[in-house]
Design a binder for these strands. Structure first.
Length: 922
DNA sequence: GTCCCGACTTGAGATGACCTAA
DNA sequence: TTAGGTCATCTCAAGTCGGGAC
C-alpha cells in the first residue's frame, strides 16, 4: 500500500463511526495544522504578530501535517509492512519541506528588514490602534499583504495534508448537525447543488445589504442596528467604521438578516444584549451611551488601573497493580520502545523494587469523602528548601567592560552570572530580554558600578560563560563515587524535606525546593523576559500547617513571613515572586490523595458531561438563531470550544504575552471563506495560544456559524474582540447552569478522553502483538495531542537518529534475505537428509522468524518515532485522558500497564489502576 | 457587574540518569 | 568503557476558575 492509500484507509477508519463522535472531533482539528511558535510581542504588536507568523514558517514549521495525516491510522498492520516505503516517501516530502523552509527564511529576512524600521516607530498597543484610524488602515494593509504571503506559504506546504482531511471535515460537519438540522441541510443541499454559486452570492449580499436570509425558515429575523456608538467610533470620527449594536428584532415569519438598518428598534431586553463593554462604559462614561463593545470596557479598566511600576498580579487495580509497580522506573524507558523481551533484573533494579514495595499505598479512594471544604485535618512538614547561597566565581574568571577588567560586587556578579549562563540562548538575542536584564542588573550594582557600566553592549561575559560551561561539563563528568555521594546527599534532602504528614499518612511533596534566583524566562514575547527573579528568603515564605503540628524551623537567623493554619487550601508554603507578583506554592505530589481526588473528580465531571452533551449541543445549536447577540456569541464560542477543544481564553493584561483563547479571540485571528479548497464555510484560525504556541486551523463550519461570525465581525477592526459580549466568566456561568460543575475546561477533558476511547476502539486489534498494540495506543494518544494542540520542538538529532534507525532496518533486511536463503538451503538438505540436518533446518527457521519479528519491531519503532517528532504526548496523557480508559484497555488486551505508564505515572494514577476493570467505559 | 486575587491545573523546555551500541 | 541517545523527571511559566471587595 502506498502512502496515499494508506492515508485514505486511515481516514476512512476515522470516519467510520456514527453520530458526532471523536472522529468528528479529530477531523475538525486535523483539517488544518498547528504550528509551534515562538512569537514576538514588541513595540508594535500587530506587526510583530505578522512577523511571528513568518518566523514560524521559517523556523518552526515542522512536518506536523504529516503526523496529522498519519496519527489516525486505521490499520496499522498494513502500515507496518509498508513503513519502509512510506518513510522513504516521507523523507522526500521532508526534503521538499526543507527547501521550502529555506526559501521562507530568505523571504522572512527580507520582510523583517523592511518592517524593522517601521516597528521602531510603533509603540502603540491595541488601545492606541483604536485611536488612530489612519495608522490602523496602514497597518491593516501591511498586515494583509504579509498575511497573504504567509497564507501562500502555508498553502504550498500543507495543502496536501489539509486536502486529506477536507472530505472528512465535510462529513463531520454533516454529522455534527442534529437530526432536525440534518434534514434541513439535506433539503438545502439539494437546492445548493442546483445553484451553489448563486447561493453564495446571495449570502454575501445578505450580509451587505440586509437581504433575506435563505438559511432556515424557522430562524428569527435578525435586525442589526447601530444602536450605539462604539468607543472606537467615538474616538475617531474620521473612521467610517462603526461598531454596531446587534440587537435582535422580534421573530418574524420569514427569517432574515438585516444589517446596518438605520431604524432604531426598542428592545425589551436590549440591555441584556449589549456588549458587556458598553454597559461598563455607560455607567462610567455616559449614561446615554448604551452599547460599547467589551474592549471598550477593558480600555476603561486599563485606564483606571494605575500601575505602579509592575503590578500585574495576573490571573496570574486490581490485583495486577503490585506487579505493575515492580518494574523500576528507568528500566521502563527501553521497554516503552516496543520491547517485549523480559528484562533481567539488575541489583540496582532490585533495590528500587524494594523501595517501591516499601512505599506506603494509601487507598484513599476507598474511603469516604469529606464534603466540608476542608482539605486536611492534620498537616505537618519541614518547610521548603532554599536555593544555596551564592558563591563567587574564581578570580581568574574575569568580566570585562569596554575591554577593561572589572571586579564586580557579589550581587552584581551573581546577576551577571545569570546572564552569562544564558549567553548562547536565544533569549539573549532579544531586545526586551536584554533591556530588562540590564535595567534590573543595574539596580543591584553599587553606585560605582552603575557609574561605569552603562551599556550592555560593552559588557564581555565570555570568560564567565566559558567558566559556567566548563563547570557544567565537569558536573557531567563526575566520577561514579562523586555521583553516588551527590545522589545520597540529595536523597537525604528528599527524605527530610520531600515528605509531609497528612491525616495519618506520609505523602510526597511536589516542589519543596524554592525556585532559585535567575532571569525570568517568559515565553513568546513576554514583556518581562530578562527581569531579575530575586532570591527568595524565609522572610518571604508563608508556612501552612495544622495548629497541632510542629511548625517547621526557619533557616538559622531567619524567620517565616507568617505561619498559617488554613485547612481549606492544599499548599504547604507560599511566597510572592517579584517579577509578576504571582503567588507561588509548595504543594503535594500528583500521587497524593489531595491531587488524586481532584483528578478523579475532574474525570467524573467530564463523564457527566458525556451524559448531557447531546442536550447541550442541541441547545447551543438552537442558540445560534437566538434573537440576542450575546446568546449567539456564547453559542458560537461554545461550539468552537466543543468542536476544536479551544481553551476558554481569559483576558490578559498588557504586561503579559499577547496570547488568546476562544473568548478572547480578536477579529484578526480568524478569516472567513465562503469557499476554500473545495470546502464550504471555512474559518481559518490563526492565533497564539497558551505559551505562545501557534494555533492554525482551517475548519469548515456550519453555515449558521459562518453567518454568525460574519455578523460578529461586522464593522469591527482587526484588534476588536470577536465575541464582544462574552467573556469566560459569562460563559462559565452559563455552563454551570447547564450542568453543575461544568466549565469550558471540562470540554477539553471530555473531548480528549472520549477521543481516546473512540480511537482505541477503532485502532486496537486483539490479534496484534504487544508492539503493535502499543503503536495503536500511541496513535490514539497522538490523536488527542493533536486535538489539544500539544506540540513540541523536533528533538535535537531527530533526523540523525532516524537515519541510524533506517540503516539498522536496511541491515536487518539484508540479513533477513540472507537468512531466507539459508533456510531454503537447509530445507533442501533436510528433505533427504539426516536428523541433524533437520534440526539445523528447524533452527534456521526459528532464526528467520525471530529476525522477521525484529524487523517488524524496528519498523514500528521508526513509524512511531517519526510520527511523534512534533507532538508531545505527555501533556494529554497526564492531564486530559481519563486513566481508567488506558487501564481498562491494558487489562482488556493484556498489555502490561508499565508499557503505557511509567512509574511516576502509575503512582499518579494508582487510584485508576486499582478501580478500573477491563470493561470500564468513559 | 467589574476587578482583582488566590488557588489550583496545564504546559513546554531543561536537565540529567540510564541504557545501548560500538 | 564510553559516547550518544532517549526518556523520566524537574522546573517554573502560563493558563483556568471561583470568590470576595467594592
Amino acid at each position: 500500500m502506498d502512502v496515499e492509500n494508506s492515508d485514505n484507509a486511515e481516514n476512512s477508519a476515522l470516519n467510520g463511526s456514527g453520530s458526532r463522535d471523536s472522529s468528528e472531533q479529530l477531523n475538525g482539528l486535523t483539517n488544518g495544522y498547528t504550528e509551534k511558535h515562538k512569537s514576538h510581542k514588541s513595540d508594535h504588536k500587530d506587526k510583530h504578530r505578522d512577523k511571528d507568523r513568518d518566523k514560524h514558517k521559517s523556523k518552526d514549521h515542522k512536518s506536523i501535517s504529516k503526523d496529522k495525516d498519519r496519527y489516525s491510522s486505521g490499520k496499522d498492520k498494513e502500515r507496518h509492512s509498508s513503513s519502509h516505503k512510506s518513510s522513504r516517501s516521507d523523507k522526500d516530502r521532508d526534503k521538499e519541506k526543507d527547501r521550502d523552509k529555506h526559501k521562507d527564511k530568505e523571504k522572512h529576512r527580507e520582510e523583517k528588514k523592511s518592517s524593522s524600521s517601521k516597528d521602531k516607530d510603533h509603540k502603540s498597543s491595541r488601545d492606541k490602534d483604536h485611536k488612530s484610524s489612519s495608522k490602523d488602515k496602514e497597518r491593516d494593509k501591511d498586515k494583509e499583504e504579509r498575511k497573504e504571503k504567509d497564507k501562500d506559504k502555508y498553502k504550498d506546504k500543507h495543502n496536501s495534508s489539509r486536502d486529506k482531511y477536507r472530505d472528512k471535515e465535510k462529513d463531520r460537519d454533516k454529522r455534527h448537525s442534529s437530526g432536525k438540522d440534518k434534514e434541513k441541510k439535506e433539503k438545502r443541499s439539494e437546492k445548493e447543488n442546483s445553484g451553489y454559486k448563486k447561493e453564495k452570492v446571495e449570502v454575501k449580499s445578505e450580509v451587505d445589504s440586509a437581504k433575506e436570509d435563505s438559511l432556515d425558515e424557522d430562524e428569527p429575523k435578525l435586525v442589526i442596528k447601530e444602536e450605539f456608538q462604539s468607543q472606537s467610533e467615538n474616538e475617531q470620527n474620521a473612521s467610517t467604521a462603526s461598531s454596531c449594536d446587534y440587537s435582535m428584532s422580534q421573530f418574524k415569519d420569514e427569517p432574515k438578516f438585516e444589517e446596518n438598518s438605520c431604524e432604531e428598534e426598542p428592545e425589551e431586553n436590549s440591555d441584556e444584549d449589549i456588549p458587556l463593554a458598553s454597559r461598563a462604559k455607560r455607567k462610567i462614561v455616559d449614561d446615554e451611551d448604551d452599547d460599547v463593545p467589551l474592549s471598550a470596557r477593558k480600555k476603561i479598566k486599563k485606564e483606571k488601573k494605575v500601575k505602579p511600576e509592575k503590578k500585574s498580579k495576573k490571573r496570574q487495580l486490581s490485583d495486577d497493580e503490585d506487579d505493575y509497580d515492580e518494574k523500576p522506573i528507568k528500566k521502563e524507558k527501553k521497554k516503552k520502545k516496543v520491547k517485549e523481551e523480559p528484562v533481567v533484573e539488575s541489583p540496582k533494579k532490585g533495590r528500587k523494587k524494594k523501595e517501591e514495595e516499601q512505599q506506603e499505598v494509601w487507598k484513599w479512594w476507598e474511603e469516604e469523602k469529606k464534603d466540608d471544604g476542608t482539605k486536611w485535618t492534620f498537616l505537618e512538614h519541614k518547610g521548603p528548601v532554599f536555593a544555596p547561597a551564592y558563591e563567587r566565581i574564581p578570580d581568574n574568571v574575569k568580566f570585562y567592560y569596554n575591554g577593561n577588567h572589572m571586579r564586580l560586587s557579589d550581587q552584581a556578579e551573581e546577576v551577571a552570572g545569570f546572564y552569562a549562563k544564558m549567553l548562547d540562548h536565544d533569549y539573549t538575542t532579544k531586545k526586551i530580554f536584554n533591556d530588562n536584564f540590564f535595567k534590573d542588573w543595574r539596580k543591584v550594582m553599587t553606585d560605582k558600578e552603575q557609574g561605569i557600566i552603562t551599556d550592555l553592549k560593552k559588557c564581555n561575559f565570555k570568560q564567565m560563560h566559558t567558566y559556567f560551561m566548563d563547570q557544567a561539563e565537569k558536573n557531567r563528568n563526575r566520577t561514579k563515587e562523586e555521583k553516588q555521594a551527590l545522589k545520597e546527599k540529595n536523597e537525604a534532602i528528599v527524605k527530610e524535606y520531600g515528605f509531609c504528614k497528612i491525616d495519618g499518612h506520609t505523602e510526597k511533596i511536589g516542589n519543596f525546593k524554592i525556585e532559585p534566583p535567575g532571569l525570568f524566562r517568559g515565553r513568546g514575547e513576554h514583556p518581562k523576559m530578562g527581569k531579575l527573579k530575586r532570591r527568595v528568603v524565609a522572610e518571604d515564605i508563608i508556612i501552612n500547617c495544622s495548629k497541632d503540628a510542629k511548625v517547621p524551623d526557619a533557616p538559622k537567623g531567619h524567620q517565616w513571613k507568617e505561619v498559617r493554619h488554613d485547612p481549606s487550601v492544599t499548599w504547604l508554603a507560599s511566597w510572592t515572586e517579584n517579577v509578576q507578583n504571582q503567588v507561588k506554592y509548595v504543594m503535594l505530589n500528583p500521587s497524593s490523595k489531595l491531587k488524586g481526588e481532584k483528578d478523579w473528580q475532574k474525570y467524573e465531571t467530564a463523564r457527566r458531561l458525556h451524559k448531557s452533551i447531546d442536550k447541550i449541543r442541541t441547545e447551543y445549536r438552537d442558540d445560534w438563531k437566538s434573537k440576542e447577540m450575546r446568546i449567539r456569541q456564547r453559542a458560537v464560542a461554545l461550539y468552537f470550544i466543543d468542536k476544536l477543544a479551544l481553551r476558554a481564553g481569559n483576558e490578559k493584561d498588557e504586561d503579559q504575552a499577547d496570547t488568546v483563547g476562544c473568548c478572547s479571540l480578536r477579529v484578526e485571528h480568524i478569516e472567513l471563506f465562503e469557499e476554500k479548497d473545495d470546502k464550504e464555510y471555512v474559518v481559518v484560525f490563526d492565533f497564539l495560544g497558551k505559551d505562545s504556541i501557534r494555533y492554525y486551523n482551517e475548519v469548515s463550519v456550519e453555515k449558521r456559524v459562518f453567518k454568525n461570525l460574519q455578523l460578529f465581525m461586522e464593522n469591527k477592526k482587526g484588534g476588536d474582540d470577536l465575541f464582544d459580549r462574552l467573556n469566560t466568566s459569562i460563559l462559565n456561568k452559563h455552563l454551570n447552569e447547564l450542568m453543575e460543575g461544568l466549565t469550558a475546561k471540562v470540554f477539553r477533558t471530555y473531548n480528549a478522553s472520549f477521543t481516546l476511547q473512540q480511537q482505541l476502539d477503532q485502532l486496537t486489534n486483539a490479534e496484534d502483538s504487544i508492539s503493535e498494540k502499543i503503536l495503536s495506543y500511541n496513535r490514539a494518544n497522538r490523536a488527542v495531542a493533536i486535538l489539544c494542540n500539544h506540540q513540541r520542538a523536533v528533538p535535537k538529532g531527530h533526523q540523525k537518529s532516524m537515519e541510524k534507525l533506517k540503516e539498522k532496518i536496511d541491515a536487518k533486511k539484508d540479513a533477513l534475505k540472507d537468512a531466507e536463503r539459508q533456510v531454503k538451503d537447509a530445507q533442501r538438505d533436510a528433505k533427504h537428509g539426516s536428523v541433524k540436518e533437520k534440526t539445523v533446518y528447524e533452527k534456521k527457521k526459528k532464526m528467520l522468524q525471530r529476525m522477521k519479528e525484529q524487523l517488524a519491531k524496528l519498523e514500528i519503532q521508526e513509524t512511531d518515532r517519526d510520527e511523534n517528532k512534533t507532538i508531545a504526548l505527555g501533556t494529554s496523557k497526564l492531564n486530559y485522558l481519563d486513566p481508567r480508559i488506558s487501564v481498562a484497555w491494558c487489562k482488556k488486551y493484556d498489555v502490561p500497564i508499565e508499557k503505557i505508564y511509567n512509574k511516576t505515572q502509575r503512582d499518579k494514577f494508582r487510584w485508576a489502576i486499582d478501580m478500573a476493570g477491563p470493561d470500564y467505559r468513559f
